[in-house]
Design a binder for these strands. Sequence first.
RNA 1: CGCGGGGUGGAGCAGUUGGUAGCUCGUCGGGCUCAUAACCCGAAGGUCACAAGUUCGAGUCUUGUCCCCGCUACCA
Length: 681
Amino acid sequence: MSDKKYTITAALPYANGPVHVGHLAGVYVPADIYVRYLRSKGEDVAFVCGSDEHGVPITIRAKKEGVTPQEIVDKYHGIIKKSFADFGISFDIYSRTSSTTQHQTASEFFKKLYDDGAFEEKETEQFYDEKNQQFLADRYIVGTCPRCSFDGAYGDQCESCGSTLSSTELINPTSALSGEKPVMRNTKHWYLPLDKYENWLKEWIVDGHKNDWKTNVYGQCKSWIDQGLQARAVTRDLDWGVPVPVEGAEGKVLYVWFDAPIGYISATKDWAAEKGKNWEDYWKGENTELVHFIGKDNIVFHCIIFPTMLKAEGSYVLPQNVPANEFLNLEGDKISTSRNWAVWLHEYLEELPGKEDVLRYTLCANAPETKDNDFTWKDFQARNNNELVAILGNFINRAVVLTHKYFEEKVPERNTLEAIDEEVIQKMNEFPQLIAASLDKYRFREAMGVFMDLARLGNKYLADTEPWKLIKEDEQRVATILNISLQIAANLAIVGEPFLPFSMKKLEGILNTTSRKWNEAGKADLLDSGHQLNKATLLFEKIEDEMVATQVQKLENTKKQNEMENKEVAPLKPEITFDDFMKMDIRIGKVLEAEKMKKSKKLLKLIIDTGIDTRTVLSGIAEHFTPEEVVGQQVSVLVNLAPRKMMGIESQGMVLMAEDNDGSLKFIQPGDEVVPGALVS
RNA sequence: CGCGGGGUGGAGCAGUUGGUAGCUCGUCGGGCUCAUAACCCGAAGGUCACAAGUUCGAGUCUUGUCCCCGCUACCA
């Protein structure tokens, strides 16, 4: 008996919102399929996951809602954990990073690296919000962009001109949290010197995993490594998280990305303790295979930072593979927690009870394995009706119903085999290896497709042999055909279990068998003749148009409702005098020409007839309008605004726009056409 | 801007070291009736994002361009 172990991790969901279909398709469904397959093969697997409960966003959300961070994470941890369990994601443990074990483990991990001198210590000046008594991440500082004078630039980037900034460059920086002016303060942090591991990473990933990692993952890693790595801070000034366990680090916690992956380890510890196993077998064993299932945004953390941490620590195994998926869109739009554009798992389970496998099937069939993909309710319905019902469910039903009709619910005797029988048995025998080959390569869509081909094989076999015709003349022949058909059904139950655990359980019920393991798949004698079957029930039911319409409607409603809630009217600006207003020279002009600025996402170059002259105005509207749409429009122009150079061209004025709730822009236009140069006042 | 991934018949995907473009669903026609109007057979449908190049020959290699997504707050 080998001591081979598998440690399979699924990305820790961030505990500030429930889980949606995007998470499932990208991470949890493929991970669960893989794990179920391994277990069926009899492998020793630890499938670990948990809620990621630290980090700045949770503290901000808590502050906004007037509750403690703990209350936020308790709420979502509960929802997430339950929905995973109900959905059949078969974690061995679903833990959380606020657990005692995690605090200890992360703390010890940091201490070990600290004692080994693996960190660099750096003191820097950072903005500090005195009102909120906390240091501010770049993203939480807002000010005027030094390049384009845009007011709402963030500390790391200006959304208007796209330039990358450092928060110290901002003019008039203010805290996004309190609106106060932040002050500079000294702070000390510990850095993981990734640059020192560059050669090792190069060897390990660029040379070592060229052929077995997915191209998107490999490409991303290679690009990071080739560009040169920099030391990365692993601590933060914050009071929510795992305290930094060294002297002089009061008020500091481990950076959430140092903390979170250690959650995989602490979860394994808790699980092992409960099961009387040794957790180290699953993290430090020579024959341990560690696999991280994640989404594409996490590639750098799981392929570079966490492995470097493990390497620096020294006693851990490294991930064997990191099969990261791309993203899933919903009805053509990006899934967004904040915009409430999502199908939430806990709601799905409530509203479509008993349809766990339909969602699993749809998400696996549409899994964004190589590129972003789209989930639509129409496709969900089609997958169910045309594939699960028509091909898989129907085959089972045909085989069982025929048996009931002709052989009183008992598996009939198999008699002399004809060529077609031999052929079908031979093909059936090949399926487990075919499916396994795909699963071993993390090609879940392909694997599931092959599984469905087995059901197709069954349907074809019945169509070719036509037992309903033969029954009148040759009952023995029909017995053979149905025996083989039922063997196919029994095989489906084994190889389909990783994909459709609920339905395959149901199928076992119909066939009156217990769960069988992967090594029995492919055999043509899983059911003995004379074996008593149970009554046929349908594995899948048709999904009617109304159900789909209801879900689509719900999506539209929540979107609308969400927009209403977000209808935040910008606060009133300070009062100005009439004279102040009169200083502005706003006129109606007509756009004569428009072209997209090269090398700019947002800027359009407009030639405008202002009545007094014809001038060039650059406007950041390229993401909302094509040049063609703009030409000929009458627009309001602030004509006495000081000229400003952008992308090498001088802009002589500003086109006035109104920004709608959804972020789209509309021109401020006269109701009827007026002469160019008409004053606005 | 840069870097990475993707762009293949209506939809979703395969296409290994360059050699007549495949699969599933949908559509159309036929067959069958055991089965949840399900199943089986056949057909139509693609200038493989665009352009140039290397080659006897390119979806597959090279160069350039365009579009989508990520790297960049929330977030898989």
